[in-house]
Computed example of a mutant assay.
Amino acid sequence: MKNYSKIVGTGSFLPPNRVTNEQLVQRLAADGIESSDEWIFSRSGISARHYTDASMQTSDLAVQAAQRALEMAGLLPDDIDLIIVATSTSDHFGGFPSTACVVQRKLGITNGGAAVDVQAVCSGFIYALSVADSFIRSGANKNALVIGAETFSRILDFKDRGTCVLFGDGAGAVILSGSDEPGILATKLHADGRYADILCVPGNVNGGVLAGSAFLTMDGPAVFKLAVSLLEKVATEALDSAGLEATQLDWLIPHQANIRIMQSTAKKLHMPPEKMVVTVDQHGNTSAASIPLALDVAVRDGRVKPGQHVLMEGVGGGFTWGAVVARM
């Protein structure tokens, strides 16, 4: 039995419809809402985001990212015996069947391996990766497909400029396989339900009728303050568990939510800006997809190399947060 799990492939996908800040500003202006490219970029670091069209579901984004990860790993779909999809925007109302099962079907996997969704919002990929690591290290599974995929454009209120300018759609995936060499070195997960209301979709359905709002709502200042504090703490926890110092990290890959939060975390860890992977400018906050998206970009452009140490971390509604230290 192999005693470790290791990332052996990455993949990502952004839907073709790229919306720049200026295009979004024009859309908001049509409804009498004032904004500007400078206002959006200075507060978030975002220049553009991608939106799905009506024909594309979260599972479709996930499948595209998964296929690219499988190709990099040199594996066939039926080599995968565990699928975990982190998403807050499942294909189906109520979350079932799970998006993971839909992905399994669309990939043509018929080996009867497990498939399940994980819901921890923007921390979802970190949660999913941690779960997959535990299954593989236990010997229960050999090859796990871990995906973060979101279609957040469908839960945005485009009359609320404080939220609608921040989010986009996309997917990122990794293949996690059993290994004789350490890959995932440490994982740390946390949650605190006392902060559930500061980032949520508050509506619910009873008898087929929506009660409350189906749109994302966020207390921006509260989320910012909490995120900055928690990301530093969980990063330190994960590094301690891995037996590493921050100076031994090659790359910081944080949840791509807000450039100011990301820069603050890097500064507190005494990591130079050039060691932080930043893709938020090109796709906005893609929630559970953002970390694997950024990882895939950095792997494919040659920044992240085999043997290097990477810290991935995120915070999300719930309130949830977590970090993973990995040797690539």
Rank of each mutant, 00 (worst) to 15 (best):
D60N: 07
L61W: 00
L61F: 09
L61C: 15
L61Q: 06
V63L: 15
Q64L: 15
A65G: 11
E71V: 09
M72C: 09
M72K: 15
M72R: 15
A73D: 15
L75I: 07
L75A: 06
P77R: 10
P77A: 05
P77N: 12
D78N: 14
D78P: 05
D78A: 08
D79K: 11
D79M: 01
L82K: 11
I83K: 15
V85T: 14
V85C: 13
A86T: 14
S88R: 01
S88N: 13
S88H: 14
S90T: 15
S90L: 00
F93R: 00
G94E: 05
G94Q: 02
G95N: 08
F96E: 05
P97D: 01
V103H: 08
V103I: 14
V103G: 11
Q104D: 07
R105T: 12
L107R: 04
I109D: 10
I109S: 03
T110Q: 12
T110W: 04
N111H: 07
G112R: 05
G112I: 06
G113A: 13
V116F: 15
V118Y: 05
V118G: 07
G124Q: 03
Y127R: 04
V131L: 13
V131P: 02
A132D: 01
A132C: 08
F135I: 04
F135S: 00
F135R: 01
I136F: 00
A140R: 11
K142M: 05
K142E: 11
K142R: 12
V146A: 07
E150Q: 04
E150N: 06
F152I: 12
F152Q: 05
R154K: 07
I155W: 01
L156W: 09
F158K: 00
F158P: 01
D160E: 07
D160V: 10
R161P: 03
G162C: 03
T163K: 07
T163M: 08
T163V: 06
C164K: 04
C164G: 07
V165R: 04
F167N: 07
F167M: 02
D169M: 08
